[in-house]
Amino acid sequence: MEEPNSERIITPMPKSLVEALDNYRFETRAPSRAEAIRRLIQLGLEAAKSDDGKD
């Protein structure tokens, strides 16, 4: 789901992380690497938000 004023972010990653990303992409049938990255970021942000008060 792309917003009208989306920004492109270029981030170098180790090969092992790219392989894990591609595995996630194929397991979840994400249409592209970019979509898989967006989904994982969203999941991470939601998890971080729910963990904020649990120290």
Rank of each mutant, 00 (worst) to 15 (best):
N23A: 14
S6F: 10
V18Q: 11
V18E: 08
D51Q: 08
D52S: 12
P12N: 06
Y24C: 00
Y24W: 06
T11L: 10
K49L: 10
K15H: 05
I9E: 07
T28S: 10
G44Y: 03
D51V: 00
T28W: 05
D55Y: 08
L40M: 14
R39A: 09
E46D: 14
P4K: 02
R38A: 11
E27W: 06
S50A: 15
E46S: 11
D22L: 07
L17V: 02
G44I: 01
S6Y: 12
Y24T: 03
D51F: 01
A20P: 04
E35N: 12
D51L: 04
M13T: 04
P4C: 00
K15C: 00
G53S: 06
A47V: 08
K15Q: 09
Y24V: 04
A20R: 13
R38K: 13
A47P: 00
V18M: 09
Q42Y: 04
E3K: 13
S50G: 09
E7I: 14
P12I: 01
T11V: 12
E2W: 07
P14S: 06
K15R: 12
L43H: 05
D22R: 09
A20M: 08
D52W: 08
Q42R: 15
A30R: 14
R8W: 09
L43P: 01
T11H: 05
S16Q: 12
A47I: 02
L43V: 07
L40C: 07
E19N: 10
R8I: 11
L17F: 02
S6L: 04
G44F: 01
K15W: 02
I37S: 03
L17W: 00
E7C: 07
K54D: 10
L45D: 06
R39L: 10
R8S: 09
L21S: 05
D52K: 15
R25T: 09
A47H: 10
R8P: 01
L17C: 00
A48D: 13
E3H: 13
L21C: 02
P4F: 00
G44S: 06
P31D: 05
E19M: 11
G44E: 04
D51H: 04
P31S: 04
I41P: 05
S6I: 02
F26Q: 15
Y24M: 02
L43D: 06
R29F: 03
M13G: 03
L17I: 05
I10G: 09
E27S: 15
R8K: 14
E2V: 11
R39E: 10
R39D: 10
A30E: 11
D22H: 06
S50M: 15
P31K: 11
M13C: 11
F26V: 14
D55T: 12
E19G: 02
A34R: 15
A20S: 15
D51K: 07
P12V: 01
S32K: 07
R39I: 12
I10V: 12
